[in-house]
């Protein structure tokens, strides 16, 4: 299993995230749980990416779960009204 660690989720990370997650989502057989609990920063590019990821999971009939997000990240999701779009443990 590949473990990717991110201390921030920004436009600089989205390409590598896509590369890492695309094969996972294509072969998804259960809910996708991603641990971003160590990320302290998130920007709009990353939020948009998570929306896309969520949509893709739903399309496969599963859910995306993001447990233990940091408060700073949650605050930013609320700021742009995206909490409900991404879901997870918010």
């Amino acid at each position: 299993m590949e473990i990717l660690e991110y201390d921030k989720l920004t436009i600089y990370e989205v390409d590598s995230l896509k590369k890492a997650l695309l094969p996972v989502v294509e072969t998804l057989s259960k809910d996708l749980l991603l641990d971003f609990s160590s990320a302290t920063k998130i920007d709009m590019a990353a939020i948009q990416f998570l929306i896309s990821l969520k949509k893709s999971c739903i399309e496969k009939g599963f859910n995306l779960v993001l447990p233990r997000l940091q408060d700073s990240v949650k605050d930013n999701l609320r700021l742009c009204a995206c909490s409900s779009l991404i879901g997870g443990d918010l």
Binding site: V14, K18, L22, F49, S52, S56
Partner: peptide, 9 residues
């Protein structure tokens, strides 16, 4: 916002 396979992140 497109699906993961189509998104240009």
């Amino acid at each position: 916002v497109p699906l993961l396979k189509d998104i240009e992140p």
